[in-house]
């Protein structure tokens, strides 16, 4: 390293050596920071997820992650297989299935609106939603979290499957404020139609993909 102090041209070797040493040192720092925080980060993520799931499924005290694929439902582990949809099964203290939560996302006014919705397999309805992330205009688009009339749409939103179990009997649709007639329609917030529509579209897309995979294999979740 002393060679680097030479006043004239620095040799390539010295430069490579310096950068190599610094990079090694930095590598060690990063790895130790990663190892040191890994446990806390994983725990944090788990808590955040549980909190979100328990919020949309009241009464749940424990949850398990599953992946619904075309070849059945498997416990989630590692990377998501192609065509698979992640679901969170929530259980109460006695171990009975309280509901299933899954994520829905669609583009709203500003950016992706991501919501977690709770699904009740017995009644084939959606029983609640919670926003995971969004960047909608404060005071307008973010009413989807607080507007009581809007949230009432999701007390029993019909997502029952058609008899052949391949598609939804009725597509979930966001309709103009005050025009809701059917249990599968969402009454939009007046003035925040774009965001309301994004929620409806996201739920429809997710339910259409997930439910035909989920319902035939429901027993697997109940026992788990």
């Amino acid at each position: 390293m002393n060679a680097t102090a030479a006043p004239a041209l620095t040799s390539s070797k010295a430069m490579i050596l310096t950068l190599g040493l610094v990079a090694t040192l930095c590598g060690i720092l990063i790895v130790s920071a990663y190892q040191g925080t890994l446990a806390a980060v994983t725990a944090n993520k788990r808590i955040a997820l549980e909190r979100a799931v328990f919020k949309v499924i009241p009464g749940a005290t424990g949850m398990k992650e599953f992946v619904a694929t075309t070849s059945g439902i498997v416990p989630a582990s590692g990377a998501l297989p192609a065509g698979g949809v992640k679901v969170y099964a929530a259980y109460d203290q006695s171990g009975t299935l309280r509901g299933i939560a899954a994520e829905a996302a669609a583009t709203g006014y500003a950016d992706l609106v991501r919501v977690l919705y709770a699904y009740d397999p017995a009644r084939q309805v959606i029983t609640g939603i919670g926003v995971i992330s969004m960047r909608e205009t404060p005071g307008i688009g973010d009413k989807i979290q607080t507007d009581a009339a809007f949230l009432k749409n999701f007390q029993a939103l019909d997502v029952s499957l058609a008899p052949d179990m391949k598609a939804l009997a009725n597509a979930v649709k966001t309709v103009k404020h005050g025009a809701k007639q059917h249990p599968w329609e969402i009454d939009a917030i007046s003035g925040a139609t774009v965001t309301s529509k994004a929620v409806g579209k996201g739920i429809n897309d997710s339910a259409r993909r997930l439910l035909p995979l989920l319902l035939p294999n429901l027993e697997k979740l109940k026992g788990a």
Binding site: A23, C26, I30, A33, Y34, T37, A40, V41, N44, K45
Partner: peptide, 20 residues
């Protein structure tokens, strides 16, 4: 390289302290 290292470290630290 040095700055990037400490930024990565801080990134992990914040995740560990508060995800919000």
């Amino acid at each position: 390289v040095i700055i990037a290292t400490f930024v990565t470290v801080v990134d992990y630290l914040i995740q560990a302290i508060s995800l919000t």
